[in-house]
Structure formats: structure tokens, C-alpha cells
Design a protein around this nucleic acid. Structure first.
Lengths: 160, 160
DNA sequence: AATTATTTGAACATAATGCTTCATTCACAT
DNA sequence: ATGTGAATGAAGCATTATGTTCAAATAATT
């Protein structure tokens, strides 16, 4: 039982593998193997393990912007106690709601929301406010993305 | 010149393709072709276009949690005027800073930050506060992720 | 030192890929 | 309606990758 634990932390090879894939997402197994100077079998085994649970969904690579949703916003929302489950369900039924977090701090929920325009964002905001259990919202619109999501430095730190 | 514009919006086929890839990220080109009842050439062409600019980096699929960074937090930070460029550069040099947005609202910046633990988060917070130009920060730690990033509903909306 | 886990290399049949060509269909502007 | 350019489908071919298995070598743990 102690053999293959569920959640093993990434080692150097895993990190190198992921870094390569960041550079060349469509790199073939053999290409990765020779670039990292390991056998094809090893790469194959590692990739399989990475695929099983450690890698996030492909969805992460899809940007709403591609679909014409040019506005991104963060929203704080307070919910009435006891309405949690149903409120969450209603929120999840709105396609423009991309993420829902519960966080510490004043507001109960933190949403990532997208919209086609600022006008459209207003519409989405109303949709959310109409959900029973939602008390109030405060929105901040993304003006600019100075640094887009990256984990590369963390991966590089693993190697050395 | 009007032939192939840079940013074309996704059509139904693109959306279907992406939805398939969400279900089976390692699906082969031919498998996708027969599942969508289009020719292999078409899938190949579409995937190539998607790879050129519309798809976000593979980095998005890498979760800090995989690397032992179990804490995720959002941080609002105010910056002193005129320090923008250098401050941003200093922030980007901290591996635990995953994202930087400029947003409307009280705070100037909104950061996504990760850390190994809450103690570690405190350390990262100090790193950020020590950056010249950063005036103050307010942090909210993610307690739970009710809905993890998804664009599937938006994609499905394109189809019908 | 002993045991277990991981890696390696090799082989094989099967399948996918990249690329090209070409006819056809489609969308759109004239 | 008509012409133009782009997107698609179909087919073929040489090359390359894949999945799989296995025994031996190496590394890591106890």
C-alpha cells in the first residue's frame, strides 16, 4: 500500500517535462524523451501519471476572449446564511460565471465573471443579484493584465 | 489583406473541437475527426489555428497545489504613482505571484498568490510589502473552490 | 544487504502524422 | 446571378509516433 501514494509531489523530471510542454505543448513523446535525455518509456509513464489528477482540465487553456467575451471582472458577493447550496447552484447555471471561491474577509464569495461588454456585464450582474440568497455584490473590472497566469517560476524552482 | 484576419471568433466546429478536447485532452486527430464527422484535414487545420494564438499557455493546466503550494490567496495592493513599471517588475520576480491585474475600484492591483502554508503566505506578503511602490495590501485566503474555472458553458452556447 | 520501485532498451504491430494534390462546396462581394 | 477566394473532403504516401510487452539494469528504501 505504501508503494504508489495518491498525491506525490512533482520531482525534477516532472517539472522539466512540464516546462518543455509549456514551450511546446504539442511536443511528441519521443521528442520530449530525447530532449530530456531519458527513455521514451519514462516519459510515457510520467505523462500518464501527470494526466491522472495532477494536470488541470484542458478548459483552463480556453479563454473567453476567444469567444468574444472581452470583459473580465472580479465580483465579491455576500450570501444569506442557509442559502449556500441553492445559491451556488444558481450561480453555476450562469455561463458567464467562470469561477466561484469562498474566501476569508468581508465578502463571502469571490467570483470570476466574464461578459461581452461593460453593458453586458451589467446584465450579468443583474442576473446574479436576482439569485435568491445573494445579498449584494461589488464588482471590479479588469483594466489590464500585467502578468498572466504562470507557474513556470515555481516549476523552475523545483529543478534548482 | 481582408482575407485572413488575426482574431476570428470561434465557430461551432471550433467549439465542438474544444469541448471534445476538454473531455479527452489526448484525443488523436483522427479520433476527433470521426467523432465530429468532419475530415481529418479540417480537424488538422482547425487545431493548428487554435494553437496559433487562441489557446492559452499550457501553464494554465499546471496547478501550484501539485507542487505543494496548498494555499491560494487573492491580494489587493495599492501602488504609489510613478512606480508602476518597477513595481510590476519586482512583483513578477516573486514566483508565488501567479497573476497581476489592474482593476477598477479602490485597490489598484489585484494579485493571485500562492504559498506552501498560511505561515508561508505571511512570508510572501512581507516580500510584496517590501517592494518599493507598494503601499498596502489586503489578503483574502481561498477557503474553498466551489466552482473551478470553466468555459464549457460558454462553448456550448456557441453550438446552440 | 535485501527488497522494492523506477528506468532502460529493444522489439513489434498498429496507428497517427505531416504533407501534398485536387475537386468540390461554401460564403461573400460585386 | 456570377465570379472570387477560402474552407472542406477525399485520397495517397512516406515517415514517425504509439501502445505494449518484457527482461535487465539502476536507483532508492528499509
Amino acid at each position: 500500500m505504501s508503494t504508489s501514494d495518491q498525491k506525490r509531489e512533482l520531482d525534477g523530471l516532472d517539472a522539466k517535462l512540464l516546462l518543455e510542454l509549456i514551450e511546446q505543448p504539442d511536443a511528441t513523446t519521443v521528442a520530449l524523451a530525447q530532449r530530456l535525455s531519458v527513455s521514451r518509456n519514462t516519459v510515457q509513464a510520467r505523462l500518464q501519471k501527470l494526466g491522472q489528477g495532477t494536470l488541470e482540465s484542458f478548459q483552463r487553456r480556453v479563454s473567453p476572449r476567444t469567444m468574444g467575451y472581452d470583459v473580465e471582472a472580479f465580483m465579491n458577493a455576500s450570501i444569506r446564511q442557509g442559502y449556500d447550496r441553492e445559491t451556488m447552484k444558481a450561480l453555476a447555471e450562469i455561463p458567464e460565471v467562470l469561477q466561484i471561491f469562498a474566501t476569508t474577509g468581508d465578502a463571502d464569495l469571490r467570483l470570476t465573471v466574464t461578459a461581452r461588454s461593460t453593458d453586458d456585464l451589467y446584465r450579468v450582474n443583474r442576473l446574479i443579484l436576482d439569485i435568491p440568497g445573494i445579498v449584494r455584490t461589488s464588482t471590479s473590472v479588469v483594466l489590464r493584465e500585467f502578468l498572466s497566469y504562470r507557474t513556470k517560476p515555481l516549476l523552475e524552482r523545483i529543478i534548482e
